[in-house]
Computed example of a mutant assay.
Amino acid sequence: MIVDLPDTTTAKISKALVRIREEGGAVALGRVLTLIIASQLGHEEEAIEAANDASREHPMRVIVVSTQEHDTADAVARVDAEIRVGGDAGASEVIVLRVYGDAAADPESLVTGLLLSDAPVVAWWPGTAPAVPSDSPIGRIAYRRITDASAQPDPQAALRELSSTYRPGDNDFAWTRLTLWRAQLAAVLDQPPYEPIIGIQVIGAAASPSTTLLAAWLQMQLQVPVECKLTTGPLANGVHGVHLKRASGTISLEREIPDIATLSQPGQPLQDLTLKRRSLRDCLADELRRLDPDELYGEVITRGLSQLKKVVSQ
């Protein structure tokens, strides 16, 4: 069910939520958090769909604040709202706020009256993120702040910015997308022979901040200099492969086709492994599983990234 509330206020939205619960039986019981999605007008539906899917694992209230990227000076201050419940909201309640003109000047006041009582708040910027997420109006009230460097105009520059502005509670989907890569590489290194790694090469797309973070993580964990090789081209995206050099030979994990990686090890037959590109829903659900700061991400983005010396583009 979708209820439209044109040219409305936070107080009217709150009253409408109460009325919907009383008339339709929709309740907030069991909601474990409030997710605030800060997006641009016309670009919110993909994020809402991901949140609806993730809500089946994490029941929550979703508040979407959509603003115009370049608001005109004469735009009339107005808030149009939608309340989505039932089949249109997964296991969540979705409140969509489309904000125009000066009404967008203080997003914190727009959402404060709509937050679930005594529930943690997570902020997510699926598109352009503020320069310092923790200091932004919405970021200040959030336990966790999720950005996506790959959605920024210059993903590699966005990583450097995240490194300089990091605060505990920040995280980025560029790191979340590496979960399967990190798990697979850790599993390979847990198998004999237990020889030290003497050289590492990580290859990926120039527009892939995940490639850079993977290289920084490997260098920090294994204390071996890493060559991070970034490639360009119309088909270049994501992490392409990792090569771990030992005295007995090189271990290679390469993903040349979608969702399938090939593992080659000295003296062993080639293995095809499932290594899927993580969807927006998977990344969001993963981030919502923990509301405490991701300390490892904090170390990689602040310390590991600065130690990554060699980045080669071609």
Rank of each mutant, 00 (worst) to 15 (best):
R61A: 03
P107H: 08
S109D: 13
I251W: 05
A91Y: 04
L291I: 14
S134C: 11
L275F: 06
A104Y: 01
F173W: 13
D118A: 13
H58E: 10
A149V: 00
E161M: 07
P59S: 05
P258Y: 03
G25M: 02
S306M: 06
V94E: 05
E23G: 05
L263A: 11
Q307A: 10
A215K: 01
I13P: 12
V224L: 00
C283T: 09
V94L: 03
A54N: 15
T262F: 01
D74Q: 06
P293Y: 09
V224W: 00
V132M: 09
D102R: 14
I198E: 11
A54E: 14
Y166R: 11
G101A: 02
A50N: 02
T67N: 07
R98L: 04
L291S: 05
A50E: 12
S313H: 04
A186M: 15
A16P: 13
V122Y: 05
R78H: 02
P130E: 09
S92P: 00
T9W: 12
H43Y: 08
T128C: 07
H240V: 04
A77M: 06
P234G: 09
E45R: 10
R78W: 11
W175M: 10
P153L: 04
S150F: 08
G87C: 00
S150L: 04
S109Y: 11
E108A: 15
D148M: 00
I83R: 10
R255K: 14
Q68A: 06
L288G: 07
I2W: 01
Q40C: 08
G139S: 12
I138G: 14
V226Q: 08
A236L: 10
A104R: 06
V239M: 13
V311R: 14
G90C: 08
A50Q: 07
Y194W: 15
